[in-house]
């Protein structure tokens, strides 16, 4: 085995050692619920014709996204992708802004200039993905390079799918990061499908993380439905990078529980595969764990559920109030002016 396969997380004690108290755990659960709820709501809005364009969700990837984001430090940065709504939620992007983004409203993080999960929240350390995959990896590497040059104790996270691991950008990024031992953590959302392409048509080795060795750093495969295991591995990798220990490649293994996007019924995914992975739904799995290991009560659970519900209702209302962007402003904002550089992330 070229690469380490991470153990599942067991007891509350183990989790505490990893730096999470009970409040944190309930917070993680809430973030996972919000993540799913937003995407489910988006699904509905899309079918109602309220969301233009295409619509992608990360169903099945909530634990991987929330787990990694929870491990990030406040000043760390990243370039999450279309399966990583949980990162935006965990970093604090307000749900109404996400729905406004879906709907192409002025209130969305890209003010209608871009859509779906292409969201910018630089103040939260999140930089918007482009469609071209995995073009954000070299960008994340460059961010890490800046930290290294400046001696910042900050870490950059670059996400990519197992399908896009085939492109040269992935190689160039990891190679340069390895050469320079940059503070970057590569997160592979391995959901086993690249649109309709199965993994064995995408790469010829057992794990994407096997490649880390070729670039001179560690790789690890983790069960992406186990939010605590993801958290633990991400935390270790991020802190290692922060201490100057160089990059890590974490491969989060999940199944994409829906089609590639709403238009795709995923007929090509074997039914048994869906059934097998549905049995380890990340949210249900964590809920069970919380009940048996952290004594989550019915009251607590109800309260979280109703908070999420209210949040979503408010978000929808507020998003719908947000105006459509004014076309007369379209040509402004193509080029930055000197004042634009005074945004916090440039300090």
């Amino acid at each position: 085995m070229a690469v380490r396969e991470a153990e599942p997380v067991g007891s509350l004690q183990e989790v505490k050692e990893a730096g999470l108290d009970r409040e944190d755990l309930l917070g993680i659960y809430r973030h996972m619920l919000i993540t799913r709820a937003i995407e489910e709501r988006g699904h509905i809005l899309y079918r109602q014709g309220k969301i233009p364009g295409s619509f992608y969700t990360g169903r099945g990837n909530e634990a991987a996204a929330v787990g990694v984001a929870t491990a990030m430090g406040p000043n760390d940065v990243g370039t999450p992708l279309h399966r990583d709504m949980g990162v935006h939620i965990t970093r604090g992007v307000e749900p109404w802004r996400i729905i406004a983004q879906y709907m192409g409203r002025e209130g969305g993080p890209t003010r209608g200039r871009d859509g779906n999960v292409h969201m910018a929240a630089p103040e939260l350390g999140l930089h918007p993905m482009v469609s071209h995959l995995p073009a954000m990896l070299p960008v994340a590497v460059g961010m890490a390079l800046a930290f290294k040059i400046r001696g910042d104790r900050r870490v950059a996270l670059g996400w990519f799918g197992e399908g896009s691991a085939a492109r040269g950008d992935a190689h160039e990024s990891m190679n340069m990061a390895g050469v320079r031992q940059l503070p970057v953590v590569f997160i592979c959302d391995n959901n086993q499908w690249a649109y309709s392409t199965p993994t064995y048509l995408g790469y010829p080795i057992e794990h994407v993380a096997d490649r880390a060795a070729a670039y001179g750093f560690d790789g690890v495969v983790v069960d992406g439905t186990d939010v605590l295991a993801v958290y633990r591995e991400a935390k270790a990798a991020i802190e290692k990078a922060r201490q100057g220990g160089g990059p890590t490649l974490i491969e989060c293994l999940t199944l994409r529980m829906e089609g590639h996007a709403v238009h795709d019924d995923a007929f090509y995914v074997p039914k048994e595969m869906f059934e097998q992975w549905a049995a380890q739904d990340p949210i249900e799995r964590f809920r069970t764990w919380l009940r048996s290991n952290a004594d989550m009560t019915d009251d607590e659970e109800d309260q979280i559920t109703s908070v999420v519900k209210r949040l979503l209702n408010d978000a929808l209302e507020r998003a719908e109030e947000s105006p459509l962007p004014d076309p007369s402003g379209l040509e402004q904002g193509v080029y930055a002016s000197a004042e634009d550089l005074d945004t916090p992330h440039h300090k």
Partner: peptide, 22 residues
């Protein structure tokens, strides 16, 4: 900085570094 033979990483990396204030 001597970069590897990696134009993608050079320009992509420059972009990331610029986003971080360099």
């Amino acid at each position: 900085m001597d970069a590897p033979l990696s134009e993608t990483a050079i320009v992509g990396g420059a972009t990331g570094a610029a986003l971080m204030g360099l």
